[in-house]
């Protein structure tokens, strides 16, 4: 088991290095990015302080050395926590991301919890009552949920809430807490705001997961071990949950790690933009639009990191849950 973990962590590190290189090339790629513009502008000014600044920037980002050493220099800085500067925001990338990272995670975790709490029981119900009225209703709803894009749902909800209630729906905090330091009251305020974007973010995921859970469980219920469990005299409920669901849920763990977690953190940029949420997604989109390449590249590497960590956790969870995977 230990060697399995070490091997998996090793693969992840290799993968991360490869992706970070791609991320770096992307940073370098666009002509006319912020850094180039800034340098041209400074050189154009031509005075002493501007020249000093140009030298400093060239040194910091290694503009005078070839690509590979420059990558190594960037990567070394990255590991040390220096992600470069967001030229558009005129702040270190590290600050920009740190500010938004925890809120993004909180939102993602809340969404995933909602997805699982809703999808698993509904999926199990649908499978054990296949073709019943209840199953048909859930199936219809889940197809609608799959078909309607999250941002549209967000817009509709936004319209409804603003039009008919006086709930302050935009953002994750009420106005008075928005710039206040962290306190218990602010945390409670966050929880009050969190459920709505979490709900919207989870609807598509829930709909998908219901379909998957239903399909998996139907497959599993047809397996001989389910029949032999029934033949031992176990209650239907025990057969379903202890034997069938326990087996049918394994593939969902993989989905959780490799799709759900990164998907919710990354993919909801559109929803977050509509609801004006202070998460990483919209900032990433803005950074790309402004060609704020250090912010964009760093975010990209972080997304990859989350994806890899998610995958790793899913693999480890699966190995823990399914003895067949623990083979050396």
């Amino acid at each position: 088991m230990l060697s399995y973990i070490i091997r998996r962590v090793g693969y992840s590190v290799v993968m991360l290095v490869l992706v970070s290189f791609v991320g770096f090339v992307i940073i370098e790629l666009p002509p006319g990015d912020f850094l180039t513009q800034l340098l041209t502008e400074l050189e154009g000014r031509g005075d002493r302080s501007a020249e000093d600044r140009v030298t400093e920037l060239r040194l910091r980002y290694g503009l005078d050395i070839p690509l590979l050493p420059r990558y190594v220099k960037w990567a070394a800085n990255f590991v040390r926590g220096d992600f470069g500067e967001s030229f558009a925001l005129e702040r270190p990338v590290r600050e920009v991301i740190a500010q938004r990272f925890w809120l993004t995670c909180a939102l993602a975790v809340a969404s995933i919890l909602l997805v699982w709490i809703a999808a698993i029981p509904i999926g199990v119900f649908s499978a054990t009552n296949q073709y019943s009225i209840g199953d048909q209703i859930f199936t219809t709803i889940s197809f609608i949920g799959l078909g309607v894009p999250g941002f549209l749902l967000a817009l509709l909800l936004l319209f409804y809430v603003v039009q008919f209630t006086d709930v302050d729906i935009l953002g994750l905090f009420s106005r008075e807490y928005r710039d206040a330091p962290w306190s218990f009251a602010k945390f409670v305020d966050l929880l009050k705001h969190l459920w709505l974007p979490a709900l919207i973010g989870s609807i598509t995921g829930t709909a998908g997961l219901i379909r998957i859970m239903r399909g998996n469980l139907l497959d599993t219920l047809g397996q001989p071990f389910v029949e032999s469990a029934r033949a031992r005299g176990l209650k239907s409920r025990t057969v379903t949950w202890k034997h069938a669901v326990r087996m049918a849920i394994n593939p969902l763990i993989v989905i959780l790690g490799s799709e759900a977690l990164p998907g919710i953190i990354v993919g909801n940029a559109l929803v977050a933009t509509v609801l004006n949420l202070p998460t990483i997604g919209p900032e990433f989109v803005r950074a790309l639009q402004r060609q704020d390449m250090y912010l964009a590249g760093t975010t990209l590497v972080f997304f990859t990191l989350i994806l890899l960590v998610g995958n790793l956790l899913a693999d480890l969870a699966l190995a823990w849950l399914d003895p067949r995977i623990r083979l050396e």
Partner: peptide
């Protein structure tokens, strides 16, 4: 099928073994 009596009989007094021993046991137990 799901009555208490039937569940007592199944496995308790009338036991059954199947054609596919390879998949008649739940793999995770």
């Amino acid at each position: 099928s799901d009555s208490q009596l039937m569940r007592d009989l199944r496995g308790g007094e009338i036991a059954m073994i199947f054609q596919e021993p390879m998949s008649s046991l739940t793999p995770v137990y």
